[in-house]
């Protein structure tokens, strides 16, 4: 296999890496040669790299990650468990939609992170408060996307299943639910981002551990390279989760492979 074929096989990760590496180089070179900045106020990739290596072999990073993931997993799971069924009922039953839609839309559109201090007072600075915040941020994409997916169910397919003797439950399981799948995947993508914001914001307030606290703490003490390590670890997690979602999607839903247009 020639170099060209190799490129074509892997051009997705290659192109993706290129932009990241490009940005890092630009950043490093600019700060080294063009505008020398006081490292007290800003930092560059080489210094972050050193800090990264230190943290990787330290204990604190891993402890922080474990703490944060627990809250994330609880809040996120709850938002799946509540959001998908609620969205399904909203999409299927007009009366439920009319009742809940204004309220939920208002909540979705409002900057819920503003409620963070209140939630922390209510539920405490520990696991519960953060999980609730993650839940509140992540649940809406699940609700609205599932509901949109249900509403877009193909009436032809509904008729097909009804004509073969399908009852309401069959319509749900054989047409509506599989049809919402792409909508739910898109919702999950949004929810991952919003959920991570929930963790960080939750830990900014009065927490004493967790990756959000670490970022805040390093920032307060002007340890910029360490702070950036936290930020980079976070975005790496976001990328990994999104990529995992893509893989899972193709595994669970092979019929979707044909729907990509490129």
């Amino acid at each position: 296999m020639g170099l060209k074929e190799k490129y074509h096989e892997y051009h997705r990760p290659i192109l993706g890496m290129a932009s990241v590496i490009g940005l890092i180089l630009l950043w490093e070179l600019t700060l080294t040669y063009l505008i020398p900045v006081d490292p007290f106020f800003f930092t560059k990739p080489s210094l972050i790299g050193t800090a990264f290596r230190e943290q990787l072999f330290g204990e604190r990073l891993w402890r922080d990650l474990a703490i944060s993931s627990r809250a994330f997993i609880w809040g996120f799971s709850l938002s799946v468990i509540v959001g998908i069924p609620l969205g399904a009922v909203m999409g299927w039953r007009r009366r439920v939609e009319y009742t809940l839609d204004p309220l939920l839309t208002a909540l979705y559109a409002s900057p819920l992170v503003a409620l963070a201090p209140l939630l922390i007072i209510f539920f405490g600075v520990g696991l519960l408060g953060k999980a609730v915040l993650v839940f509140l941020l992540a649940v809406f994409p699940f609700i609205f996307n599932t509901s949109a997916g249900v509403k877009s169910a193909d009436p032809l397919l509904i008729n097909v299943v009804r004509s073969f003797g399908g009852k309401e439950l069959d319509l749900y399981l054989k047409v509506i639910l599989p049809g919402t799948f792409p909508y739910i995947v898109a919702g999950t993508r949004l929810a991952i981002g919003r959920g991570l914001v929930g963790i960080i914001v939750g830990e900014f307030y009065a927490a004493s551990e967790g990756i959000g606290f670490a970022i805040q703490n390093y920032g307060d003490t002007y340890r910029l390279p360490d702070m950036f390590v936290g930020i980079i670890v976070l975005s790496a997690i976001a990328v990994a989760l999104t990529e995992l979602l893509r893989k899972a999607e193709l595994m669970v839903a092979p019929w979707r492979a044909g729907e990509e247009i490129r």
Partner: peptide
């Protein structure tokens, strides 16, 4: 609907999944 009847639909109506 009943088992004694079945339809072949114009737009196929196959479940894509």
């Amino acid at each position: 609907p009943g088992q004694e009847r079945a339809m072949v639909f114009q737009e196929f109506g196959l479940l894509p999944w």
